[in-house]
Nucleic acid binder design. Structure first.
Lengths: 234, 234
DNA sequence: TTGACTCAAATTGTATACCATATTACGGTT
DNA sequence: AACCGTAATATGGTATACAATTTGAGTCAA
């Protein structure tokens, strides 16, 4: 009946008090978000309140609040008196998102290059290894999460948590494109290589080179994305 | 009892069909948002559900959904079992936001410089006049809205609606800082001047100059903001 | 005074029932 | 096949009930 309630415990690990009185709402939010970005709910699909209630085992109140949150995040689009649908993505918007990511990430990389300490570099290096490993296993889900780890480390060492927040939100809107992009054959070849170049430039403390590598990385990613999008909706 | 319901009619003016089945929720959302950014609800202030219900004349459901939306927008911060409070802003976050604005706006300005047509420039010019006029009248509320119009025109003619959306969200989080900044004496002197420089560069089709002018504009704005923030919380 | 403990009040978190209204689907009519 | 009216469905919104939790006041003891 209430499959969510059983997970209301605390998260493990950290030293910090980390009071985690996770509310049902938060759990439901996370779960719906991943359901959307992991493509379980497909773009354009209707999200009928009562169905979602049943699937999540929570009341309408919770579902409605969660949907408002996702709406504000740009993951769902609500049509009055017709209900929420999973947001769709057109080629133009996707292009703008990749452009913004290039802008934000290259700035972060440049900044990271001048401030990264050993621990930061270790984190990024670790994430990169995880990416290569996941590619070898063809586990594209892990590729994405390791990629996130890499960039999170980069933005944090650059001291730009606000920018990282924005990038994450942008990524949410192109999540399905990303997973398609990542699993494309050409991406498997160039992707990790380009990211290594970013890390090398950061290691070397060469800000402009790091920024350039970032832009190159996102340029190719954006191109692949455009090809996929045109292929899907001609 | 229901002051909101009376405004559920359509907005006036436009030729467009403007399907305005504005739901209560949307109206309440707008109103709460402006209440926050216009400083009616002060940062750190608690938003007790039932009080807000009374003030808005709507039910708890609506208020809660609106709060979820604002939460996702970063305008309120919810502490579990304690309720939502209006988000506060520390100096570090403010600095990052101004930096992001500089990044986004300078990119847009550069792009606008290469694409602006006569109509675009007319729009921006008009907005600038409105800014100067509002400054002369010391109507700082109008200054802000005219400034928004200027930037909206700029981002639109640059073909970057997604970036504009992000800037607007960032602006929401620093709205009270902006109004303080705008009404500072020094800002009255340099602000419109710097924006004229941006427009001149766009008119001249000089992208790099436009970007530079943008960065200069935001650099001084950011400095003033930092001074104000340190002055407020020492 | 400080500290700790208890208990009541206030508020949030969640569920549920209900109704009005708008949309959609269906089914019959021409 | 196009048209129209009606029923079914879903959303938008309200009200209410209740458990869980925080907060604060007050009390008592050291």
């Amino acid at each position: 009946m209430k499959p969510l309630a059983s997970e209301a415990k605390a998260a493990p690990g950290k030293l910090r008090i980390e009071q985690a009185p996770r509310t049902l709402r938060e759990i439901a939010l996370e779960r719906m978000r991943t359901a959307i970005v992991e493509f379980h709910f497909k773009p354009g699909q209707r999200l009928v309140e009562r169905d979602v209630c049943e699937q999540l085992g929570v009341s309408r109140s919770v579902v409605r609040e969660v949907i408002r949150h996702l709406e504000a995040e740009g993951l769902v689009h609500t049509i009055p008196h017709q209900g929420p649908i999973v947001a769709t993505l057109d080629a133009e918007t996707a292009a703008q998102i990749y452009e913004l990511r290039a802008l934000l990430e290259s700035a972060a990389a440049q900044s990271a290059a001048t401030q990264a300490n050993a621990a930061d570099i270790a984190r990024m290096s670790l994430a990169l290894d995880a990416i290569s490993d996941a590619y070898a296993r063809k586990d594209f889900h892990d590729v994405l999460s390791a990629t996130n780890s890499f960039y999170e480390a980069m933005f944090m060492c650059a001291g730009k948590p606000v920018a990282w927040e924005m990038v994450q939100r942008l990524n949410g809107r192109i999540s399905w494109l990303r997973s398609l992009t990542v699993s494309s054959a050409e991406r498997g070849a160039t992707g990790p290589l380009q990211m290594r170049q970013i890390l090398e430039a950061i290691k070397a403390g060469d800000g402009p080179a790091a920024a350039l590598a970032c832009r190159a990385h996102l340029a190719t990613a954006g191109e692949i994305a455009q090809r996929l999008i045109n292929l899907e909706s001609p």
